[in-house]
Simulated assay, not measured.
Amino acid sequence: METIVGKQSIQFREAPHIVSAASIVGKKEGEGPLGKLFDQIEEDPMVGQASWEEAESALQKKAAGLAMEKAGPGVPPVRYLFSGDLLGQLIATSFGVMDLKLPLFGLYGACSTIGEALMLAAMTVQGGYSDAVLALTSSHFGSAEKQFRYPLEYGGQRPLSATWTVTGSGAFVVARSGGRARISGATPGRVVDYGLKDSMNMGACMAPAACDTICSHLEDFGRKPSDYDYIITGDLGSVGHTILLELAGKRGFDLEERHLDCGMMIFDSETQDTHAGGSGCACSAVTLAAYILPKIESGQWRRVLFVPTGALLSTVSYNEGQSVPGIAHAVVIEHC
């Protein structure tokens, strides 16, 4: 059974396995440094649908189906689904997974959602409530811009601190056994708010939360950054990366040699005009599925702290002058 560790962490004594993963991305993501690693690249940003929102739902449906197909016949049937997205009332998820006919737990952790989904999936499997669970999330550049910023037709300029929302969906089947990577621990994040109000600089808004979760995790488990091959955040981008290193240093942890960020890996900022990097729920999810997980499964990396990050703003809170709180969820993924 899982064991409570320190102030807020969990250690899974019989660590559930990630038995399969699927990554589906858009054309721009396919042209980036990780392009050859993704399972499927959608050349059509509309994915054959009538709206950006429907396109994102289609991405979720495809990724979920592919992950369950890749799990193979030896894995028990998926019983529950943990999923979420960035859109109001999780419409990309609800319309995307409807045809799967699976009981759904809808999650909102902004861009940290896949961390929350994997954590809850592991708890559900470890607790004996299901033999197999699906963790899923998505984002889409068009739907995110339309909801949080300006419609694409507006043609607004983006500051250098801005990130580019990843179009894609990542899905993972978590089961009792059968994989070469396992979820051995987790540290749920707290909402951290430094009072920043710039929605075009989400890296700065999320970095304090990333620092809080990473440092709390290391303190709870009595570990050092060197106990991990890498500590990989979700989408801080280049701005948030710099802030995280500074904040963690003030708490006594040097992350300089161990920190990677999915938002900095998924695009080439010099040639793809993505400014500070990538963002969105899919950013960390597809990078985990296509790049991080294979390295763990092969044994090239033995232990990784995967820390998706999220900016907890909405159009309502932003228009009312509220700040942009952040959250980060940490998941320990080990080779087995």
Rank of each mutant, 00 (worst) to 15 (best):
L102G: 14
P103H: 12
P103L: 01
L104A: 09
F105Y: 14
G106E: 05
L107F: 08
Y108E: 05
Y108F: 15
G109K: 01
A110L: 03
A110W: 10
A110Y: 09
A110P: 10
A110E: 11
C111Q: 12
C111I: 05
T113S: 09
G115W: 02
G115T: 03
A117P: 13
M119Q: 05
L120S: 05
A122F: 08
A122C: 10
A122E: 03
Q126C: 14
Q126N: 15
Q126Y: 04
Q126T: 15
G127W: 10
G127S: 09
G128K: 13
Y129H: 15
S130N: 11
S130E: 12
D131T: 06
D131K: 14
D131L: 01
V133M: 11
L134S: 12
L134Q: 12
A135S: 14
T137R: 08
S138I: 04
S139P: 12
H140S: 08
H140K: 01
F141G: 00
S143R: 10
A144N: 14
E145C: 10
E145Q: 15
E145Y: 12
E145H: 12
K146V: 00
K146Y: 13
Q147G: 01
F148D: 08
R149H: 14
R149P: 00
R149Q: 10
R149E: 07
R149D: 05
Y150S: 11
P151K: 02
Y154H: 09
Y154F: 13
G155W: 12
G155N: 09
G155I: 07
G155A: 00
G156K: 03
R158P: 04
R158Y: 08
L160S: 14
A162W: 13
W164H: 13
W164K: 04
T165C: 07
V166R: 01
V166H: 07
T167N: 01
G168I: 00
G168A: 03
G168H: 06
S169F: 09
A171R: 06
F172I: 03
R176H: 10
S177Q: 15
S177T: 15
S177V: 03
G178Q: 11
G178V: 09
G178I: 02
R180M: 06
A181V: 08
I183S: 06
G185L: 03
T187L: 04
P188R: 00
P188Q: 04
G189V: 04
R190N: 07
V191M: 05
Y194E: 10
G195V: 09
L196C: 02
K197P: 05
K197Y: 14
K197N: 11
D198G: 04
D198H: 13
S199W: 12
M200C: 05
A204Q: 05
A204D: 07
A204I: 00
A204F: 02
C205N: 14
M206V: 01
M206E: 15
A207F: 00
A210H: 06
A210Y: 02
D212K: 01
D212I: 00
D212W: 06
I214M: 01
I214F: 11
I214H: 08
I214S: 01
C215S: 08
C215M: 11
C215I: 02
H217K: 04
L218N: 01
E219W: 03
E219K: 07
D220G: 03
D220I: 00
F221S: 03
F221M: 11
G222C: 01
R223K: 15
R223I: 02
K224I: 03
K224C: 09
K224D: 13
K224W: 06
P225S: 09
S226N: 10
D227Q: 07
